[in-house]
Design a protein around this nucleic acid. Sequence first.
DNA 1: GGTGAAAGCACCGAGTT
DNA 2: AACTCGGTGCTTTCACC
Lengths: 159, 159
Amino acid sequence: MAKFKLDETDHQILDMLIENTRTPFTDIAKKLLISAGTVHVRVKKMEEAGIIIGSSLTLDYKKLGYAFIAYVGVFLKNTSQTKFVLERINEIPFVTVAHVTTGKFNVFCKIRAKNTQHAKDIIFLLDDIEGVYRTETMISLEESINDKKRLMHSIFKDM
Amino acid sequence: MAKFKLDETDHQILDMLIENTRTPFTDIAKKLLISAGTVHVRVKKMEEAGIIIGSSLTLDYKKLGYAFIAYVGVFLKNTSQTKFVLERINEIPFVTVAHVTTGKFNVFCKIRAKNTQHAKDIIFLLDDIEGVYRTETMISLEESINDKKRLMHSIFKDM
DNA sequence: GGTGAAAGCACCGAGTT
DNA sequence: AACTCGGTGCTTTCACC
């Protein structure tokens, strides 16, 4: 998990691909005044190094009828059950991320649901897991995302 | 924000593109036994409908030296300041998402940092925002992601 | 590590069923 | 709606710098 060295050109390539994975390498090449072959080689190297894990579509879950987001803090009866509970949590659909955390909760997860009714069903599944003492739900009323591009800019500035 | 109707073919196209945005349409066509032109038309329609918002790279932040994830619950002095505080939060680099929530916290955000020292700096910035009463941090010790593909399968099954 | 050219494909629109 | 087909343009490799 060592820090990998990327130069300014790599940053700019990532920058354009983060915005749109399908940006033609020829476009990137034109903008950076390098050849398309070079873009290709550099992307391949970043893939091989594992910096670029993959690419994915960004979908509008609201339009798909899944506008409900909530965070659920999970309290365990005993921390020794963490691994078991985490496995059970990962079997529940609509739980999009789960974290083992320090602080208030033992496990902390994010769920995406159709509506409150649907969210209730998911939370009940969480509550029913053996080893779960109780849960605490925080419903998201408004989401504001700091896009990846900004995060990457912050990271690049820091390197 | 109405629910949009997608058929089985659309599901399968999304499924392949979610896994790898650059999957050639010809490959998708071969697998689904339709023509590449059809794949093209359907993707375009989903883009026009706003279902597909865009595409992005998945990067290994650990390899970039950003292995630290924490969730920070923010308590406000007064909920009328929510909008102002949210704007200030969005100006802080390395805060990747912020939610206005019901429940324990007023605002809830996720941060990505290099290490504990760096995280401390970010949290201090949050604490210093005018209107913030106090914050509560939960450090992620272990992350387990339910990939998009599984979420989409759950969504498709439900439609 | 970069280039430029060339071969091989993919994309995508037009016209057809 | 989906297909075929063809022009255009993208990707990817390779010999050379």
